[in-house]
Design a protein around this nucleic acid. Structure first.
Lengths: 239, 239
DNA sequence: TCGCAATGGATCACAGTCGACCCATTGCCG
DNA sequence: CGGCAATGGGTCGACTGTGATCCATTGCGA
């Protein structure tokens, strides 16, 4: 395979020589928009930023962005209206059965998730949170406990993202969003069990309490426990 | 700025609407190659994979890859030889004064680094390591303590990457490599102080001992302490 | 000594992407 | 009622990136 005189570690080389881009600009743009809809960042009925602004933020030409939006429109996920106060809106009926990217490697995803989310919980707890952040965290927790079964995974995602957001670190927030998307792809293939949801709700409360109390160790511990539950569930169903 | 009826969280929206790609294919390819050289993944004098294979791994056309390699060659970082057993080789003299990407936000980088590297140390310690992995970790530790001042940061990077590699999770390894590159860009602007290096060596030993002993808690703690030292140093010089 | 395999070197036609520009629609507000 | 601002809709020419294909060089081994 490789010459013995080249002791290049395989895993590391694989990491550095990984693909420079996941797909073409159109595909990646569409994926991002779907991610925003799936994770509930733009709520059903909500309006996306104007095309010109969105294209600039995504670093993509408006032509390419519009191709992606047109594909989403044809698939029924969004709807565009012209004129002042027009825009592109998320169709309220499209919350379910969104296409998910193919699940990646299970252990890879779980290992990355554990590192990122426990790190985020600890960092959020270690930080002086604004009243606004505190309110946001509490609101997401309440959404989660109040959510009907069908909305559970979306509100759950939003809670976990809110924790990452509370760290104030954009890179960490983005990384958590990405790993969450991978996790959702895995979760999509296993059933929602009411008992697990009750467990999760308790754990969520413990996590948020620890963050709001400014207790990094407790926040990390609670998050680790929570994540471990989901990991076992996934391993049981998929391994 | 935005309508009050759209409670889209700013940090999260920023994370999801971040640029789809960091630059054009040529730039990103060149950046990856520099990263591989900087982090010592391909050692001085070492040979890069053949162009056809490398292009395929990076998901880029051979034409684009060759443009990047030609730029590196003109800048004196690599050298190509034709014929059987030819290839593209890293110039031994080019270890120093490699161009670094502009440093990003300090706190953002440090927060992400803390999460990823403490997570990696913990995951590595929690894992049944192969004898080969154990040897690799010890070897990188020895390189680090034995390194002359000029090589310290490269051997240090390699040690930290070896820890990430030991987790067996490619995504985590890639993420650590990326954040390390950002960290190196920051470190480049502050001096190397022998006292700090001695401290680091002790901490490195404690981390590796904990990982080899299979003690996740100790590994995390030791890594957290180590990283906190570097963080203070950076905040002192840059904040 | 010669053929062959493995490598880098080069070119071309085609598809993807971009930036710039202008048009079409809508509804607020003077 | 009419202008205007904000939005989506569409087109064009230039540049980027790709896949395929061939060429050039080198050195091992039959």
């Amino acid at each position: 395979m490789s010459l013995p005189s080249e002791p290049v570690p395989q895993v590391l080389a694989d990491a550095l020589f990984r693909p420079v881009r996941a797909g073409n600009a159109f595909e990646e743009t569409m994926e991002r928009m779907l991610q925003a809809i799936r994770l509930g960042v733009v709520p059903p009925g909500g309006r996306l930023p104007p095309e010109r602004e969105l294209a600039a933020r995504l670093g993509v030409s408006r032509v390419t962005l519009r191709e992606a939006l047109r594909a989403l429109q044809e698939a029924g996920y969004v709807e565009s209206r012209r004129g002042r106060y027009g825009g592109t809106f998320v169709r309220p009926t499209s919350a379910d059965n969104l296409p998910l990217p193919p699940p990646g490697d299970l252990e890879d995803t779980l290992t990355l998730r554990l590192a990122l989310e426990t790190g985020a919980a600890e960092a959020a707890a270690a930080r002086a949170l604004t009243p606004q952040s505190r309110r946001h965290l509490r609101a997401r927790l309440d959404d989660c406990t109040a959510a009907p079964l069908a909305d559970y995974r979306r509100t759950d995602s939003r809670l976990h993202l809110a924790i990452a957001e509370a760290t104030g670190a954009p890179s960490l927030t983005g990384a958590v969003a990405d790993v969450r998307t991978r996790l959702n792809a895995l979760l999509a293939s296993i059933p929602l069990i009411p008992t697990n949801i009750e467990h999760s709700d308790d754990q969520h409360r413990a996590i948020i309490d620890a963050i709001l109390a400014g207790d990094p160790v407790a926040a990390r511990t609670a998050m680790a426990e929570h994540i471990s539950g989901t990991a076992s569930l996934l391993r049981g169903f998929l391994a």
